[in-house]
């Protein structure tokens, strides 16, 4: 285990309970996790085991009911909403199963969105967006809307959008869940390439083969981490 000082993410005794009517759902139970910068982690487990909840918590979309969360050495458990938004904007990238592109915006405008939200001037944005379009091979799709793009292209737009501000952590919740096998492979290779460049990558997946590619595999069941295995660096196929 790496030292806390050099950790990117430290979760300590995290609990998260949802109340549905009268019943309480324990989505996370006493989760302890230590993640170093640049790691490649697969989170696996049955449906409803708390994988998404864990990812949302790390991405500061959700708050723990108990426990502490340190991101890059800073306690982010009690940040106010505006400070959380700033952290999300600068340090965290989200990738979703259903892409979540804004349908009325072009691919380019979707990729530009985080820059626009951060208040960056238009000229600087244009430069970065065209760079990103080139990197992800989307230049000729720049002016297409979501419904004119294939699933793979949509997810590439989403990845370009999530990474355009060079976040420290990339959180992908079943990123290949809506894609066919071949396209899914492509997307995974893209994510792994980003990880190779130093971005910490956390992928939630159902796919055993996909999970096996990660160096570190975390298994969850009923809100708890039941196994946390770091394998030897595997050779990409």
């Amino acid at each position: 285990m790496p030292e806390a000082a050099e950790s990117l993410i430290v979760l300590n005794g995290i609990d998260r309970t949802f109340t549905l009517g009268d019943s309480k759902v324990h989505a996370l139970r006493n989760v302890n996790l230590n993640i170093a910068p640049g790691e490649y982690i697969a989170v696996m487990g049955p449906s409803g085991s708390g994988k998404s909840t864990l990812l949302n918590l790390i991405g500061l979309l959700d708050r723990a009911d108990a426990g502490t969360y340190q991101l890059e050495g800073r306690d982010v458990t009690t940040l106010d909403p505006d400070e959380q938004a700033k952290v999300r904007s600068e340090r965290i990238g989200f990738i979703f199963q259903s892409f979540h592109l804004v349908p009325r915006l072009t691919a380019a405008a979707n990729i530009e969105l985080p820059l626009t939200l951060s208040g960056m001037p238009a000229a600087e944005r244009a430069k970065r967006v065209s760079q990103a379009l080139k990197e992800y091979g989307l230049t000729d799709r720049a002016q297409h809307r979501s419904n004119e793009l294939s699933g793979g292209q949509r997810q590439r737009v989403a990845i370009a959008r999530a990474t355009i501000l060079r976040p420290a952590v990339l959180l992908a919740d079943e990123p290949t869940g809506n894609l066919d096998r071949v396209t899914g492979e492509e997307v995974v290779r893209l994510l792994e390439a980003l990880n190779t460049q130093g971005m910490t990558l956390i992928v939630v997946t159902h796919d055993q083969a996909l999970g096996a590619r990660a160096r570190r595999q975390i298994r969850m069941d009923d809100g708890s981490i039941v196994s946390d295995v770091t394998s030897k660096p595997s050779q990409p196929t």
């Binding site: 979309l61 700033k86 999300r88 989200f94 979540h100 804004v102 939200l117």
Partner: peptide, 16 residues
Amino acid sequence: TNEIGLLVALGARRRT
């Protein structure tokens, strides 16, 4: 609703 969730995930503040 989806779009609003996305904007929050991308770092939009409530005020925005």
